[in-house]
Design a protein around this nucleic acid. Structure first.
Lengths: 189, 189
DNA sequence: ACATTAAAACTAATTATATTAGTCTTAATG
DNA sequence: CATTAAGACTAATATAATTAGTTTTAATGT
């Protein structure tokens, strides 16, 4: 192996993840990343096609972690289907709060190439979908799932982007909104 | 006045808005913008402090247009408070679909300095807030408003970011989700 | 008519970043 | 001990934002 320092693809992605967690994707340059790994920027191209591919790998990492968090939460939840959905939506929000920069990079990206792929997204929402179907019935299950995801995702983004600045307890308001939404599905005419 | 071409701050912001509408903020460079105005990039600094200030002005423009769209919709709506809220949420979504790039730039921004200010945001949601209060009662009106905004904003972003790719009619699913949410508030125990 | 001023353009330079081309180092292999 | 190839390096290029310093020209005052 050449030269003192040595780096592999996984190291690079792990380090990128950490820098993004700390400072956000906007503040990640390949120079900084390389420096953190004790290497110069061009060396990274030995392991990663380009910055987009790197960020895509970071995003896949984020998706996998979120999937894991939701599966864990699903395994630990009990109660009525509605209560369990609520618990998963809270777990989802909790993840976003724990990893705001990674969450934003993974799930609010204009760049087609950086988006998590469809299969991963499906796997991600599967636990919620299953329970939601029990709440809404199978006919409307996709609409009900989409509404649920919109509600959490939207709430989280409004929080992360600083658009809920009028006070009050955001955790309580989130719980209240989720309950209203689920109650609406239970009260189908 | 000096030199053949001449440009003022409003021209610059209007042109930036148009380029962003067409191609997204990621594809706007000061070079392109200046060229579209028949001028060189450094000339822009005579009228705008820097790129951030320019984008901030563009975002304010977007907010004002959205405010106008919602006020117009509010003026034309009739029916029960729930029906009127639903109509406003549809108008909101419609605006986002008509102006996806501008919407994303204005409302999904990590950069503190680019965010629409609090007063403008309040003005924006005021028509929705007023009606929502009639649905939820005044006690819970802030939570109810936040949930409604989260639902639309989240739904729109999932759409714009290509995360609802499993078919079905998204307009119908949106309407369905909104109805469920509002029904939930009407069915408060 | 002419000199002055000031707004607003310009060119040239600086910094940062991603990326490519071409070179050097060294561990492993024959 | 020679060769090879992975993986580092330096140097160079292109694009962007931004700053410094210069030039143009309309308007103003004498």
């Amino acid at each position: 192996m050449p030269y003192p320092s040595q780096v592999n693809r996984d190291d690079i992605i792990a380090q990128a993840w950490q820098l993004i967690e700390a400072d956000g994707a906007d503040n990640l340059s390949l120079n900084k990343l390389a420096a953190a790994l004790g290497v110069k920027a061009p060396s990274l191209y030995r392991h990663v096609a380009n910055k987009a591919a790197l960020l895509q790998a970071v995003n896949e990492n984020t998706s996998l972690r979120l999937i894991e968090a939701l599966q864990t939460a699903a395994a630990q939840t009990s109660g009525s289907p509605s209560e369990q959905v609520a618990a998963l939506l809270h777990a989802y929000r909790h993840f976003a709060h724990e990893h705001p920069h990674s969450y934003l990079l993974a799930f609010t990206n204009t760049d087609e190439a950086l988006r998590p792929d469809a299969a991963l997204l499906e796997q991600m929402v599967l636990p919620i979908q299953t329970l939601m179907t029990a709440v809404s019935g199978p006919e409307q299950s996709l609409a009900a799932l989409r509404g649920a995801m919109a509600l959490v995702h939207g709430f989280v983004l409004l929080e992360l982007h600083g658009q809920l600045r009028r006070g009050g307890d955001l955790a309580v308001d989130f719980a209240t909104a989720v309950q209203a939404y689920l109650r609406g599905w239970e009260a189908v005419p």
